[in-house]
């Protein structure tokens, strides 16, 4: 679990002078899983400029490797013929790309203004606490900026599935379901069969 306000990775570190510079890898020198190579190559063909494929490519590599690891970036760099630094620069810019091995799945708890005024902070803290208590592993649990679901505030995105409105009381079950790989809060996910906001039922 990473507090995004702490110092970013690498800020305080010197380079390793013993290592080689990270240049564009020669394709002949890097082994890439075939499915990943195919998905990146397909993405490059969708755009007039292959660089446009870099976000799809990084997302695909993250799926395979769990995070944007140096090896993941090297593979993308070899297929796209760009430098690994170009990819690092992007991976560290976008919130959904992980530059640390902090989990191959995620729970984003929205804490922006509309959720804030509905006690999202407490919901987030409860979920974070549960995650610690239940020793949830390989899942990135973090507070997130507005997820575009203020109507269901406070809410969270569990691997892209939006659930809400949440209260602190939901934290235990939410984390347990994530841990056990069950569907989180069935019926309370946006897009679930017959999903209704509480006040819509009343209406």
């Amino acid at each position: 679990m990473r507090d995004r306000r702490t110092m970013p990775l690498g800020w305080d570190e010197a380079v390793d002078l013993e290592r080689d510079p990270a240049v564009v890898p020669d394709p002949a020198e890097v082994e890439v899983p075939e499915a990943l190579r195919a998905s990146i190559t397909a993405a490059m063909q969708r755009y007039p400029d292959r660089h446009s494929a870099v976000l799809p490519a990084l997302a695909a590599a993250q799926k395979v490797h769990g995070w944007c690891s140096p090896e993941a970036l090297r593979q993308v760099a070899a297929v796209m013929q760009v430098t690994p630094a170009y990819l690092s620069s992007l991976a560290s810019y976008y919130d959904m790309l992980r530059t640390e091995p902090i989990g191959s799945r995620y729970v984003y708890v929205c804490t922006s203004v509309a959720c804030h005024v509905r006690d999202a902070r407490a919901v987030y803290e409860a979920i974070a606490q549960e995650a610690r208590d239940q020793e949830l592993e390989d899942v990135e649990v973090r507070n997130f900026e507005c997820l575009g679901a203020c109507d269901m505030a406070p809410m969270a995105s569990v691997d892209g599935r939006y659930v809400g409105p949440l209260s602190e009381d939901d934290a235990h079950e939410l984390v347990a379901a994530v841990k056990e790989n069950r569907e989180v809060l069935p019926g309370r996910g946006l897009g679930d069969e017959g999903f209704r906001l509480p006040w819509e039922d009343k209406a």
């Binding site: 970013p8 380079v15 990270a22 140096p70 430098t83 630094a85 170009y86 560290s92």
Partner: peptide, 26 residues
Amino acid sequence: EDYQLVFLERGDHTYVGTHDGRPYVG
């Protein structure tokens, strides 16, 4: 065009660096 030196992170966290702690050699 060696594209080894980049901005990492974003906003007030932005800093100049290289990939994975590699030296900038060109």
